[in-house]
Amino acid sequence: MNFTLYDYAMSGNCYKIRLFASILDVEYERIAVEFYPAAEHKSYKMLQLSRAGTLPILKSGDMILSETSAMLFWMAQKFDSFENWWPAKRGADLNALILQWMDFSSQLSKTVGRARLNALFQTPVDLDKAIEGARRALRQIESHLTEQSFDDKKFLVSDKPTIADIACFPYVALSPDVGANLGLEHDGYPAIQSWLYSIKSLDGFIPMPGIYPMHDLKADETDFAGNRPATGKVG
């Protein structure tokens, strides 16, 4: 097996890794961790594996990763032999922009992600601050994607998707889960809507609760966690 993912099906951060693995058609071992209600990720056993006390955790041999940006980078290096997703040879500017949007994705987790956990499970958070931050983040990504569209670019940094798109996609797509009439639905964000469609159209796209496939996409061959069956191929 290429790696082990300690995973929670309802987590947008975990979904980044499941989604990218599906797109790259990479097999991995999945271990379900009871994030809620037991907070198993904070248990002694899990803290021994990763001091960060967060999910997901990616383990490959002796290497343990707890940050999703690092995981996406590692997966791109390891399994994407065409270098589409981390196009190292396309120059410093492009790569720096990818890193910038990967950093931005942590803003989305801290705002949309935390507000959503509060809406679902009443996880404590400064809700007003999280919602205001979420709105600001959506507006920022909307105006950036609008500018990209003037250059015929459908994705965050390029005309092709990169790991920056995978990093930002889940919590932008999940923002309506926070609740109605909070300014976090996608209706007012046409550029975001079209970007979400572009990602949902990618080969290997899988859904998660709150993120639905497009109707014309084949939704077959996924199990309950959205994983596609192993094909035996490894990148």
Binding site: A9, M10, V33, L120, G210, Y212, F224, A225
Partner: peptide, 20 residues
């Protein structure tokens, strides 16, 4: 336990989007 709980939560979160 984690797998069984996750399965049920997943189903219910799909319902939640519709219910809201």
């Amino acid at each position: 336990m984690a797998e069984m709980i996750e399965f049920q939560q997943l189903i219910f979160l799909q319902d939640r989007s519709v219910l809201e």
